[in-house]
Design a binder for these strands. Structure first.
Lengths: 138, 138
DNA sequence: CTCCTCACACTACTTATTGTAGTAGGTATA
DNA sequence: TATACCTACTACAATAAGTAGTGTGAGGAG
């Protein structure tokens, strides 16, 4: 699972994947169980016809990258994400937060408070609480 | 100035630029004033001979991206960064912090405390202080 | 005044990533 | 056996980045 980029411009899964990859991951993570390429293709078709082969190529590349797993059935393969969406987002969030602080240290701290305040002031309380908890445990 | 990616694997300027781009920006930001392509090439040569044209191409691409400015002298061009390194890092730090919180919200908050604690516990106090200041002002 | 040198512009090739899809090949079923 | 379907392989376009060759124009050497 070599994730590498966080894109500034996009949002959601588009920050980590290409546009088609993102849609495909969206579908895979929405599916309750393992699904086939055909399934994915049909769900994508709502917007625009995309070749079966295109979907297959992208999905197999995601397998190579360790994002998806594929399993052979009698007549076809079924795919599923290696991690849940939550686990994935959790991992990315953690990675990114650590990298941010490693890279920017106190500079980031300054922006954190502003950012939290603007996005959702309640997060400030959460953060304050978290800090207190940590300090108490020592 | 369209910066787009934050790379997980690398560090420093390598998080925002390609390897050669990063070395070149390092040189530009270290230089006291405007410098020529030749200057940059010579400083790079300490490690490995790189063609003048290669350096020129990369530097002009950085100009297109709005990272560098070039100015015409009688016989040649001189280059300098549009922003100071500090301003650049500041902008990236801010952008990334906001995006992180926008994307991950409370999930990020949890990791922030851990990350700060591991990287430099004093940052926790700084953050706590910042929160208090903000709340007081309201 | 002519010619050479140098710096810049233009073009191109390479690798990697992502989107796109054609063709080839194997297997099960009609 | 023929066909329908699924998979594998291959390939092409676009973008980003590294690398460098060729073309060109202008200033200095003689």
């Amino acid at each position: 699972m070599k994730m590498q980029n966080f894109k500034f411009q996009s949002s959601g899964l588009g920050r980590f994947f290409g546009p088609l990859e993102a849609k495909i991951m969206e579908i895979l993570w929405t599916a309750e169980s393992e699904i086939t390429i055909k399934d994915v293709q049909h769900k994508l078709d709502r917007e625009k016809a995309i070749s079966f082969n295109t979907v297959m190529t992208v999905m197999n590349r995601l397998v190579e990258k360790g994002i998806l797993q594929k399993r052979s059935l009698i007549r076809s393969f079924v795919y599923r994400p290696v991690m849940t969406r939550e686990a994935f987002m959790e991992a990315q969030s953690k990675e990114l937060t650590f990298d941010l602080i490693e890279e920017f240290g106190s500079q980031a701290v300054v922006h954190m408070v502003d950012a939290l305040d603007q996005v959702d002031p309640e997060l400030l309380d959460r953060l304050e609480q978290k800090i207190k908890e940590l300090k108490k445990d020592r």
